[in-house]
Design a protein around this nucleic acid. Structure first.
Lengths: 241, 241
DNA sequence: CACATGTTGTGGTATAGACAACTATATTTA
DNA sequence: TAAATATAGTTGTCTATACCACAACATGTG
């Protein structure tokens, strides 16, 4: 279970093991975990080292301690990636609607100066340009255009876009983790093309949403422009802390 | 400096002292703080106890450590209250505009069922209803109506509203700390009254923003309905982690 | 029976010391 | 001079121990 000779710190090994058990559901919210002294005994490790592992998990919200009683598994964190800035898919699910996506185009194009600027890459550098219609219960909800640097995320294909969450693909196939995002929301009026795709009348108000997502080190990962029909969509945000 | 006989834990005393020095500016970003052994020597405290204090501050983002070099004061956390959900005043300042406010009405009224529901109070319970025009560079930007339970925050007057930030007043005059918020943003069309106050043509698109703010324990504190003119306002959000 | 009192087990705080890993600087060596 | 080596100082990890405060349960006492 614990390898004392490993270069990986003991407290870290234990910490990850417990975290995994929680995430796999082997430990459920409300469960009591072994006491610090029991862990120390079981693994022949000093209690202070055990505490180092547990303290980290308490700080991260996986566990909570009660003096005199024990240490317990906390309620699962509902914390979505990006606290409240959910993907379209998750967003629609949480509203009780069936999310869908209809691809319009998938290309690798040279970055315009604006796109290059947003993604912090060289002008004319290769970027994926992905256009999609987003559906909720099969009704068009938004027109979405995504830009991602092709040098950063390689091997993206149209099929992946259809079958998998883009965020998942990025986290699985590269070392980057999307960690923060900037959004700009504004009201506008549907133009010819937009009204056509969204099946609304030209001139009706739409919500224009621009999202830029960044990795932990501040590198821009994706730049998304969406046009939502304002008559059917409300943008909801929940922010904590 | 450190009182070993105090019932307040030593690590906590040190932790708060360093935090204060950072917040007062006595320690500036980039500064090296004393090494762990120096603190231990100075206060005649075990190094492990010093580490307990510093580790907490590192986790909270006040400090960062570099192995072999020392422990440093981190860049100030730009973290606004509610990470990116700033008040109108702060919002406008950050856009380089002069924020202003023109009071329209200030009353204590019985809560309608909708308001009572939002604030989790009894129907017909007393609530402040505060209507204001929000100005940016003296140009009307939004029409804002705020509801706050009069039982929760007492002694609010119209003058306070004009001269002071509402958030500041609440945090100074009660034990509640605004900790999270829910916002709903939608597009709509200006009605007669709205167009009049905002000095735009009736029928032009506006952004309707509802904000509900909560304290740490989940009690709703305020409920705000704002109507922003869409031609001059863009809603920006920055979310971390 | 009801109440006080121990006893045991839990997390919370604190100590003193050890060695590892890393950085920077000074010193020695080729 | 340039490169290797030692040295001192830093944070990182870990141990073994001690005592405190709190919770739960058993036990004794009135």
């Amino acid at each position: 279970m614990i390898n004392k000779k490993s270069p990986i710190p003991i407290y870290y090994q234990l910490q990850e093991q417990i975290k995994n058990m929680i995430e796999k559901g082997e430990l459920k919210p409300g469960d009591t975990i072994s006491s610090e002294r029991q862990y120390a005994e079981k693994f022949k490790i000093s209690r202070m080292t055990i505490r180092q592992a547990l303290t980290k998990l308490v700080d991260e919200g996986y566990l909570y301690r009660v003096k005199g009683k024990g240490t317990f598994v906390a309620e699962r964190k509902i914390e979505q990636p990006l606290q409240g800035l959910t993907s379209f898919t998750e967003d629609m699910k949480s509203r009780g609607m069936k999310p869908g996506s209809k691809p319009l185009s998938f290309e690798v194009i040279p970055a315009s100066s604006s796109i290059a600027n947003h993604l912090a890459i060289q002008e004319y550098g290769p970027v994926y340009e992905i256009k999609r219609i987003r559906l909720a219960d099969d009704v068009p909800m938004a027109l979405e255009t995504t830009y991602i640097s092709a040098n950063l995320i390689k091997g993206l294909t149209e099929e992946i876009m259809i079958n998998q969450s883009l965020y998942e693909y990025i986290e699985d196939h590269s070392r980057v983790k999307i960690d923060q995002a900037e959004q700009i929301i504004e009201s506008s009026i549907a133009d010819q093309m937009e009204s056509q795709y969204l099946k609304i009348k030209k001139g009706l108000p739409v919500m224009l949403i621009q999202r830029k997502s960044f990795s932990e080190d501040g590198t821009p990962i994706e730049f998304v422009k969406s046009v939502y029909r304002a008559d059917r969509y409300r943008f909801m945000i929940h922010m904590k802390r």
